[in-house]
């Protein structure tokens, strides 16, 4: 058969389309399944009351609160530290062997399995620093886990700001820090927020790092200080699914649905803020 460009175009298109479709399919399937099996238990009571009768009844309020606290705590530690060190690495550090080693280490940190972070948090924060299993220990552990995400995205955001902006600012006699503060950071902000979105999703969804450092199996009350344990949604989901016999299956899917919605709405907030900044700073 003779080569036919029309025909090869059609084949290529079909294969590429099919691949994309196969990627999207499971996502749609997961979301539909969770909604379909979980929506019926969602109620005011399910969201805002304590679990009861060994978690077979009642709500998941403490797990929602716990997850929110953990996400907040993670950002408090990881965001300033990550952004500031990314600024140093991109704008100040000389491009020498040491800097390259540090950058490599940060990239590799992103590949460490999350259970290893959990073990590390147990050793350092829970036992060595004697924070006990607590919101503080859990937040710090999660913060270390999401640091590479925040540093990498911030670095990329800073690098995507045109070099010419820095030159213009410097040429007007401003210091390096003023240049970063007024001519680089404002335009890197949307990119940094992308990192925040990724970090929030990761922190809210991970089970292994909180397993030894903060998560309570069954604790039907709200925490009173950062040294308290809390329940958290992903761990609660794991417990419901494997550790408690005779749980209504809808409770599991309801919990999964809440976790999904929580992460999505946190992301949505960041996306709205990001869109606002993008609209203002276009070049």
């Amino acid at each position: 058969m003779k080569y036919n460009s029309y025909r090869s175009e059609k084949i290529a298109f079909t294969i590429l389309f099919a691949a994309t479709f196969l990627v999207v399919l499971p996502v749609i399937f997961i979301i539909l399944m969770i909604i379909q099996k979980g929506y019926s238990v969602i109620s005011w009571e399910f969201l805002f009351t304590m679990p009861a009768k060994g978690m077979r009844e009642g709500g998941i309020w403490p797990a929602i609160v716990g997850t929110l606290y953990l996400v907040l705590g993670t950002l408090i530690f990881a965001l300033p530290l990550g952004v500031l060190s990314a600024i140093f690495l991109t704008e100040y550090a000389k491009n020498n062997a040491l800097t390259r080693l540090v950058k490599l280490a940060i990239i590799n940190l992103a590949g460490v399995p999350s259970v290893v972070y959990g073990l590390f948090g147990l050793g350092i924060f829970v036992m060595f620093l004697k924070f006990g299993a607590s919101i503080l220990a859990g937040s710090l552990t999660l913060a270390i886990m999401v640091l590479p995400i925040i540093i990498t995205t911030t670095k990329e955001a800073l690098e995507s700001v045109p070099q010419s902006f820095r030159e213009v600012s410097l040429s007007l006699g401003t210091s390096k820090w003023e240049t970063i503060r007024f001519s680089v950071l404002p335009y890197a902000l949307p990119g940094i927020l992308t990192g925040v979105i990724l970090a929030v999703s990761r922190a809210a969804g991970e089970t292994a790092p909180i397993l030894f450092t903060v998560a309570a199996f069954y604790l039907p009350k709200l925490p009173e200080s950062v040294f308290n344990q809390v329940m958290a949604l992903p761990y609660h989901l794991y417990v419901l699914s494997t550790q408690v016999p005779n749980v209504d299956i809808r409770l599991r899917y309801g919990t999964a649905l809440v976790l999904l919605m929580l992460v999505l709405s946190l992301n949505l907030m960041a996306i709205v803020v990001r869109a606002k900044f993008r609209k203002k700073k276009k070049w």
Binding site: S164, L172, G173
Partner: peptide, 27 residues
Amino acid sequence: GELRKRVGMVFALPVPLPLSIFENVVY
């Protein structure tokens, strides 16, 4: 910093910062 204040520069390509006209001048 003082040197660059005293010796200004206009670049080959115009590089307005993504700010208003006013804010560009008073940067």
